[in-house]
Design a protein around this nucleic acid. Structure first.
Length: 875
RNA sequence: GGGCGCUUAGCUCAGUUGGUUUAGAGCACCUCGUUUACACCGAGGGGGUCGGGGGUUCGAAUCCCUCAGCGCCCACCA
C-alpha cells in the first residue's frame, strides 16, 4: 500500500467523523469517572455558522477533546436558542412577502408559521459544527423551546414569583411605529443626523412675562406637563412655582426647578414631556408630574393633538412650525446635529413610549455572583480583565425587564381575570382557572381569563441553560444534574458578559446554590485584516463552510487558533488557514517519510540515533510540561505554537533529519520503533487542534497499535526529563548553525566534508556525533592553535572551534569581523564590571543574580582573550 | 459625559507577580538552494533606544505620575 502524496481532507474528515459517531465516542453518561462538562453557547436556531462560531466552538472542542484524553468523562452539550426577536422578525418578514400581516392572524396561527420556519431552517448550524469536527454529544441536543426546556423556564418564573422577585411596572420602551412593536435597546442605532432646534415662546399665567425654551420636537408640546429650569439660574428664579401656558393648546403647566437642566444649553429652560422622553419621564416621577400620551401606535397624534389628530409626527412638526410662526411663538430655528435612534430593522425613528412590563428584582440576588467571582475565585475569568467590567455592571445593576411584546418565545405564565388588573401565576390555563376560582368569590369560566400576551426575554431562558439542559429546574435532584453540574468551562464572547454570563452565574446560585461553571474563557471578536468587524453588510466575512471545504477543518482550526489569545480580537485572514494547511502538509509528509523506511532488524542502533531520540524524548516532555501549564491557564494559542514549533522544528527539521537513513540504507528496528512512539505522542498533543489529520496519520503509522482511536487515547503522561540534555542540544544546534553559516559565507557546498578543530581544554561535547553527521564534518581534531593557520573561529558558549582556512581568504575582512566582535565584548565586559563595582547592587541583589554577573565576567574575559589571540594570529 | 482597557520588530502577539549575557515567537521580508518526505520545502540572514516625558529602585518593557494616540462597554443633553 502506498501513502497518497497529497492529504485528502475531504474524504478523511467524512470518514473519521462517521467513525467517531458510529462508535459513539462523544457520548457521555454519568459514571464513576470525573465529569468534564461544557454547555455550548446556543446559537440562533435558524442561524448559519460564521467566523465567530468557528473560533468559539473550535476552542470548546479543543478543551473537550483534551479532557476526554485526560480520562475524564467529557460531555459537551449542544443546542440552539429560539432567539425570539431575530427569529420573529424573520418570520414576520417572510409572512409579509406572502401577503400576510402578523396583526391579522391569531397568535396560534403565527406560532404555527414560526414553527414551520424553524423546522425548515433550524438546526443547520449544528450540522455545520460537525463539519468543523466538534465532538458534542449529539444525543443531548437541546432547543430552548423544546417542551422540557419550555417547562423549565415557566417553572423558574414561578419560583422567582413566589419569592416575590418578579413584579409588573412601567417602563419607557423603544417603540418602532412602522413594525408596531417594541424593540430592545440593542436593536436601536443612534445615528448623528441634521436636525433643527426650535426656540418656542411660552407665556406666563397672570403675568406679561414670557419664557423661551429650546426643543428639537415642537410637535410634542401637546404632551408638555411642565417647564423646568435650573434652581441656580438667576434669570428664572422668580418664575419657579408659577404657571406657564402651552402654546396652541392653552393648557397651564407648572414651572419647576431641577439641577438636571443645563444652564448653558439653549435658553436654559426645558419643556418636560414625560410620556415621550426618558429623561422627562424621570423628571416627571421626581416632581410628580402628569403624563400625557399624544401618539397612537403609528406615532401619529391622537386626540390630545387637537386639530393635528391623525397626522404623523413629522408632518405635524412642519405644520406646527408654520402655525407657531404665524402666531409669533417661534422665536428662531437653528441647525442642530444630534443623535436620532432608528430601528435596526425598519429604520423608522424610534419613539420612546411608556408601557407596562414585567421585571425581575436583581439587587436581592446578585450577592453570590459578586462574592464568588470577585472576592474568592470560585469562578475564574480568562482573561481576568473582564472582572472589572463584570463588577461595574453588578454594582450598578438595574431590575431586569423580562417581558417582550412578541409571540415567539416562552409566554409569560400570568393569567388575568376580573377587571384584567388582577392576575395569578400558573403553569397553564387549567391550573390558573383552578387557582383563581379557589381564591375568588366569583367563579370564572375558562374564556374569562386571559394569559399575558408577552413572552419572556430570550435571555430568561438562556440564563438557565447550564441547569435546564440537565433538567435541574424541574427535577433539582436528578442524577444528571448532580453529576454534570457545575460544569467546568464556558467559552463565550465578552459582548454578552452581562446578558448571559453574569446572569447564568446569578441563576446558578439562585436555583442551585452553586456556580454554573468554574472557568469562563472570553474569546475576542473576529475581525478582518483592517480591524473591521465581520458583517454581512460589509461582505468581509468568509464563508465558513467554504473555508473548511477548501483548506480542511484542521487547517482552519489551526489558522483560527494561531493568534487568538483569550479576550484578544482575532484579525482573520485566509493566509492563516494557508499556514494551517502548510502544517498539515508538513505532518503528512513526515508520515510519508517514516512510512517509506525499510527496516533492518539486525542492524545495531547507531550512536547518533540513540543520542537524537533520547534528546527528542526529553525535549518532548519538557515541552509537554509547558503545554500542560498553558492549557491550565487557557493559553490555547501558546499551546498550539509550542506544539507547532516542537513538531516542525525539533521533530521534522532536527530529529527526522538525523535519524533518516542515507540513500539506499535501512533504519535499525530499535530507532524506528522509538521514533514511531515519539511520532504517536506528537499526534496526541496535536489531536485536540487537528482531530481529523492526527487520527488519519495515527492509523497509518507503520507497526503502530491502533486498536484504540486517538480520540479516546490517553494524553501523554509527563516523564522526568533531563534539562541538561535539552540545553546541550540547543548548544549543538548553535554549533551546527555556525558551521552552516561558515559554509555559506565561504561558499562551500554542504556536501564538501570539513575538518573541525577544537582546543584540548574544551569540554567534550556530548552530541559530537550529531554535529559530524548533520554538519558534514569528516574529522574532529583535538588540536592546539600552533598546529595550523587559523582562518575562522567561532565561539559558542564555552566551546571553541576552528576550521582550517582555504587558500586566498580575505584576511582583512576576517580581522575586521573579529575586531568588531572584540569591541562589543569589551564594552559589554565594562558594563558588567561597573555593575559589580556598585556596592549597592552587590549588597541588595540576590546572590543568584550577583553570581550570574560574575559568571558573565569570566565568560566574556575568556572570549576576549581568544578573540585577541585570533586577531594577532592573523595579523 | 461615566467606566474599563490598550500602545513591544513591517503585521499579529508573548513577556507568569522588577533580575538568565545583547527583549522573544509566528507570519512577512532578504540571500542561497530544486539533495530521492515536503517549494504547502530546506539552510542562512536583516529588523525593536518596549508610544513621549518624569519618578521609585542597586536594577524598569514590567511599579507610580503625567502627556499623546487608539479601542471597548454603559448612558444618550433638550
Amino acid at each position: 500500500m502506498q501513502i497518497s502524496p497529497k492529504y485528502n481532507h475531504i474524504a478523511t474528515e467524512k470518514k473519521w467523523y462517521s467513525f467517531w459517531m458510529d462508535n459513539k465516542l462523544f457520548n457521555s453518561v454519568p459514571n464513576e469517572k470525573e465529569p468534564f462538562t461544557i454547555v455550548i453557547p446556543p446559537p440562533n436556531v435558524t442561524g448559519l455558522l460564521h467566523m465567530g462560531h468557528m473560533l468559539n466552538n473550535t476552542l470548546q472542542d479543543i478543551l473537550v477533546r483534551r479532557a476526554r484524553m485526560l480520562g475524564k468523562n467529557a460531555c459537551w452539550v449542544p443546542g440552539t436558542d429560539h432567539a425570539s426577536i431575530a427569529t420573529e422578525a424573520k418570520v414576520v418578514e417572510n409572512l409579509k412577502q406572502k401577503g400576510i400581516n402578523k396583526s391579522d392572524i391569531s397568535r396560534d396561527e403565527f406560532l404555527k408559521h414560526a414553527w414551520e420556519w424553524t423546522e425548515k431552517y433550524g438546526g443547520g448550524i449544528l450540522e455545520q459544527l460537525k463539519k468543523l469536527g466538534c465532538s458534542c454529544d449529539w444525543d443531548r441536543t437541546k432547543f430552548t423551546l423544546d417542551d422540557d426546556m419550555y417547562e423549565s423556564v415557566i417553572e423558574a418564573f414561578e419560583i422567582l414569583y413566589k419569592k416575590d422577585l418578579i413584579y409588573r411596572g412601567y417602563r419607557m420602551i423603544n417603540w418602532d411605529p412602522e413594525a408596531k412593536t417594541t424593540v430592545s435597546d440593542e436593536e436601536v442605532n443612534y445615528i448623528e443626523e441634521d436636525s433643527s432646534l426650535y426656540y418656542l415662546t411660552y407665556s406666563i399665567d397672570n403675568s406679561n412675562k414670557e419664557l423661551q425654551i429650546a426643543t428639537t420636537r415642537p410637535e410634542t408640546i401637546f404632551g408638555d406637563t411642565a417647564l423646568c429650569v435650573n434652581p441656580k439660574d438667576e434669570r428664572y428664579k422668580d418664575l419657579i412655582g408659577k404657571q406657564a401656558i402651552v402654546p396652541i393648546c392653552g393648557r397651564k403647566i407648572p414651572i419647576i426647578a431641577d439641577s438636571y437642566v443645563d444652564l448653558e444649553f439653549g435658553t436654559g429652560c426645558l419643556k418636560v414631556t414625560p410620556a415621550h422622553d426618558i429623561n422627562d419621564y424621570n423628571l416627571g416621577l421626581k416632581h410628580n408630574l402628569d403624563t400625557i400620551d399624544i401618539f397612537d401606535e403609528n406615532a401619529a397624534l391622537n386626540y390630545n393633538g387637537l386639530h393635528y389628530q391623525g397626522k404623523d409626527r413629522f408632518v405635524v412638526r412642519k405644520e406646527i412650525e408654520f402655525e407657531l410662526k404665524s402666531n409669533n411663538l417661534l422665536l428662531k430655528k437653528e441647525n442642530y446635529i444630534h443623535n436620532v435612534g432608528r430601528s435596526e430593522r425598519t429604520n423608522a425613528v424610534i419613539e420612546p413610549r411608556l408601557s407596562k412590563q414585567w421585571f425581575l428584582k436583581m439587587n436581592d440576588i446578585t450577592k453570590p455572583a459578586i462574592e464568588n467571582v470577585l472576592e474568592n475565585e470560585n469562578i475564574k475569568f480568562f482573561p481576568s480583565k473582564f472582572k472589572s467590567t463584570y463588577k461595574y455592571w453588578l454594582e450598578n445593576i438595574k431590575d431586569w425587564n423580562i417581558s417582550r411584546q412578541l409571540s415567539w418565545g416562552h409566554q409569560i405564565p400570568v393569567f388575568y381575570y376580573g377587571n384584567k388588573e388582577e392576575y395569578i401565576v400558573a403553569k397553564n390555563k387549567k391550573e390558573a382557572l383552578t387557582k383563581i376560582n379557589s381564591i375568588s368569590k366569583i367563579q370564572y369560566k375558562e374564556d374569562e381569563i386571559i394569559q399575558e400576551n408577552d413572552v419572556l426575554d430570550t435571555w430568561f431562558s438562556s440564563w438557565l441553560w447550564p441547569i435546564s439542559v440537565f433538567d435541574g429546574i424541574r427535577n433539582p435532584n436528578n442524577k444528571e444534574i448532580n453529576y454534570y453540574y457545575p460544569t467546568q468551562d464556558l467559552v463565550t464572547g465578552p459582548d454578552i458578559i452581562f446578558f448571559w454570563v453574569a446572569r447564568m452565574i446569578i441563576s446558578g446560585y439562585e436555583f442551585r446554590d452553586e456556580k454554573p461553571f468554574s472557568n469562563v474563557y472570553f474569546t475576542g471578536i473576529v475581525r478582518d485584516k483592517l480591524r473591521r468587524k465581520m458583517s454581512k453588510q460589509l461582505g468581509n466575512s468568509p464563508d465558513a463552510i467554504k473555508l473548511i471545504e477548501e483548506y480542511g477543518a484542521d487547517s482552519v482550526r489551526v489558522g483560527l487558533m494561531l493568534s487568538s489569545a483569550a479576550g484578544n480580537d482575532l484579525l482573520f485572514d485566509e493566509s492563516l488557514c494557508q499556514q494551517g494547511k502548510n502544517f498539515t502538509n508538513k505532518l503528512w509528509n513526515a508520515l510519508r517519510l517514516v512510512y517509506g523506511w525499510e527496516t533492518d532488524k539486525n542492524k545495531p542502533q547507531p550512536k547518533v540515533n540513540k543520542l537524537a531520540l533520547n534528546w527528542y524524548n526529553n525535549k518532548f516532555h519538557n515541552t509537554l510540561e509547558l503545554i500542560n501549564k498553558n492549557f491550565d491557564n487557557y493559553r490555547i494559542s501558546d499551546v498550539l505554537m509550542s506544539s507547532y514549533r516542537l513538531i516542525w522544528d525539533d521533530f521534522c527539521s532536527w530529529l527526522l533529519e538525523i535519524v533518516k537513513p542515507d540513500y539506499g540504507e535501512q533504519i535499525d528496528l530499535k530507532s524506528k520503533n522509538e521514533l514511531i512512539k515519539l511520532f504517536e505522542n506528537n499526534l496526541k498533543i496535536l489531536h485536540p487542534f487537528m482531530p481529523f489529520l492526527t487520527e488519519e496519520i495515527f492509523h497509518n503509522l507503520p507497526d503502530v497499535n491502533d486498536s484504540v482511536p486517538l480520540t479516546i487515547s490517553n494524553w501523554p503522561k509527563i516523564e522526568n526529563y533531563d534539562q541538561t540534555i535539552v540545553n546541550d542540544f540547543e548548544t549543538t544546534k548553535e554549533i551546527i548553525s555556525q558551521i552552516r553559516n561558515y559554509r555559506k559565507e565561504k561558499n562551500i557546498s554542504f556536501k564538501t566534508s570539513l575538518d573541525l578543530y577544537y582546543l584540548p581544554n574544551n569540554k567534550p561535547l556530548v552530541n559530537i556525533e550529531i554535529i559530524k553527521k548533520i554538519a558534514w564534518i569528516k574529522n574532529l581534531v583535538e588540536s592546539s592553535k600552533d598546529d595550523f593557520k587559523m582562518v575562522n573561529s567561532f565561539l559558542i558558549k564555552n566551546y571553541e572551534f576552528f576550521i582550517p582556512l582555504e587558500e586566498g581568504f580575505d584576511k582583512d575582512a576576517e580581522i575586521e569581523k573579529l575586531t568588531k566582535e572584540l569591541n562589543y565584548n569589551e564594552s559589554f565586559l565594562k558594563s558588567v564590571q561597573n555593575k559589580l563595582k556598585n556596592e549597592k547592587f552587590v549588597k541588595n541583589a540576590p546572590d543568584a543574580i550577583v553570581n550570574l554577573e560574575k559568571q558573565k565576567i569570566v565568560d566574556t574575559e575568556q572570549k576576549i582573550k581568544s578573540l585577541q589571540k585570533s586577531i594577532s594570529e592573523l595579523s
